[in-house]
C-alpha cells in the first residue's frame, strides 16, 4: 500500500522554443507541459494517460532532469528541490530515479553486452569494486527480471526478443535500487501476449521493492490494471485525477469519458452512452484559449473559452480533481485557479 509522498510536482512547465530562419530566431513555443501538478507516494503507481503528443513523455523526462532547463514550476523529490540540484548532488539523486522506455530496440546500446548494459550504472556510481562483483550483481538482476543469468549475460541486444529486451531495460533501471521509475509506455510496442508478462513483472518488482511508478500510456485499459491513481492529460495539462476505481466508475471530464468509451466493453449487454472524440487534437503550439478541450466538447459554454479566467480545478470527492465546469453539477468546489493564458502567437 502507498506510503509517504516521495515526489511532489507543482505547476510543472516545459516549453520548447520553435526556431526559424538562418539565425534560429525564436518564433514561438511548443507548450508541451503547461502547468502540471501531482504527488506520488512510496509504492504507488500513478497512471498518466492521454493522446499522442499531449506531453506525457516530456513531463516524465523533465522530472528526471533529462530535458533541462525546466520552464517553470517546482518539484520536491525525497525532500529535496529537484530543479535546484547540480553536479554531484544531481548525480546522486539520479540513483533514485530511473526510466523504462517504450521502444525495446532503441533503448539498448547495440554494441554493448547485457552485462555492460545492466552493470553500467553500478560502475558509474562505484557500487562495485571489480568485474567479478559486477558480474555477480548483474546475474542477480537478470534473475530478478526473469532472464537466464548465465546464458544471457554475454549476449548482445539483437539476440533477444522484444519482451526479453524490455526485461533487460528493466534490469538496468532497477540496478541502483531506485525509489521512482518513470515507465514510458513500457508495453505499447510489445505483442499483446507479452504485455501481461511485463506488467506482472513490474508489479511484482513494485511489491518487493516498494517502488513508485509514473506509468505513462495512451490508453486507459493498460493503466487501469496497474495504477492506484490515474491522471488524464490533455495538451500539456492534467484535466482529471482520481483513484483508478473512482475514475472508471465516475468520470467527469468529457475527455476522460471519451477515452473510457474507446475501451471495448467485455459485456455486450452493457449499453453505455459512447462519447466519440471528433476533430483533430489541436497542437500545443497554439492551444485553444480557456479549456483547451472546448473545440471538441459538446458541453462547451462561453466561460470555457475565457483565456483571462481559465476553467479552474474542482475537487469532487476525496482525491478526485477535475478541470471542467461540469464538476459544479457534481458538487465540486474550486481548489485551484489557473493563471491567465497568453494571447496566441503568430507562427
Amino acid at each position: 500500500m502507498p506510503g509517504e509522498t516521495i515526489l511532489e510536482v507543482k505547476d510543472l512547465r516545459k516549453h520548447f522554443p520553435i526556431r526559424r530562419g538562418l539565425f534560429g530566431r525564436t518564433v514561438g513555443q511548443v507548450k508541451a507541459v503547461d502547468g502540471v501538478s501531482f504527488t506520488l507516494a512510496r509504492g504507488e503507481t500513478l497512471g498518466l494517460v492521454g493522446e499522442s503528443g499531449c506531453g506525457k513523455t516530456t513531463a516524465g523526462r523533465t522530472l528526471l532532469r533529462l530535458l533541462d532547463p525546466v520552464t517553470g514550476g517546482s518539484a520536491t523529490f525525497l525532500g529535496k528541490d529537484l530543479f535546484a540540484q547540480r553536479g554531484e548532488e544531481l548525480r546522486r539523486t539520479r540513483k533514485h530515479m530511473q526510466i523504462i522506455f517504450q521502444d525495446p530496440y532503441g533503448s539498448l546500446n547495440p554494441r554493448m553486452t547485457v552485462e555492460s548494459i545492466v552493470g553500467e550504472a553500478l560502475q558509474i556510481h562505484g557500487v562495485v569494486s571489480d568485474r567479478k562483483e559486477r558480474r555477480e550483481r548483474v546475474q542477480g538482476l537478470l534473475r530478478e527480471v526473469g532472464l537466464d543469468p548465465v546464458r544471457h549475460i554475454t549476449r548482445y541486444p539483437h539476440e533477444f526478443s522484444g519482451g526479453q529486451r524490455q526485461r533487460i531495460g528493466i534490469a538496468r533501471a532497477i540496478a541502483l535500487d531506485p525509489e521512482f521509475i518513470m515507465c514510458d509506455e513500457p508495453v505499447s510496442a510489445l505483442d499483446v501476449s507479452i504485455q501481461a508478462q511485463i506488467i506482472n513483472l513490474l508489479q511484482s518488482l513494485q511489491e518487493r521493492k516498494n517502488l513508485s511508478y509514473l506509468f505513462v500510456a495512451h490508453d486507459l485499459k493498460v493503466v487501469e490494471h496497474i495504477s492506484h491513481r490515474v491522471a488524464v492529460m490533455y495538451l500539456g495539462e492534467i484535466v482529471e485525477t482520481a483513484g483508478s476505481g473512482e475514475l472508471y466508475r465516475n468520470p467527469i471530464h468529457p475527455y476522460t469519458k471519451a477515452l473510457l468509451s474507446a475501451i471495448p466493453v467485455a459485456d455486450p449487454t452493457v449499453t453505455t452512452r459512447r462519447e466519440i472524440l471528433t476533430g483533430e487534437p489541436p497542437t500545443p503550439i497554439n492551444p485553444p484559449a480557456g479549456c483547451h478541450f472546448h473545440p471538441r466538447c459538446r458541453f462547451a459554454e462561453d466561460r470555457c473559452r475565457d483565456a483571462a479566467n481559465p476553467v479552474p480545478v474542482y475537487e469532487v470527492g476525496e482525491g478526485h480533481r477535475v478541470q471542467c465546469i461540469l464538476a459544479e453539477k457534481e458538487g465540486g468546489r474550486i481548489v485551484e485557479h489557473r493563471p491567465p493564458q497568453n494571447a496566441p502567437v503568430e507562427v
Partner: peptide, 27 residues
C-alpha cells in the same frame, strides 16, 4: 537515442556517453 538518454539518467557524464555509447556506434 533512448540508450543515450538511459545513460544520462544513470548518471553518465558527457565523456562516457560520447565514448562508450555514441562513438562506438559510429565505428
Amino acid at each position: 537515442n533512448d540508450y543515450a538518454v538511459a545513460a544520462r539518467s544513470l548518471g553518465a557524464g558527457d565523456g562516457r556517453i560520447l565514448f562508450r555509447h555514441l562513438l562506438p556506434n559510429c565505428m
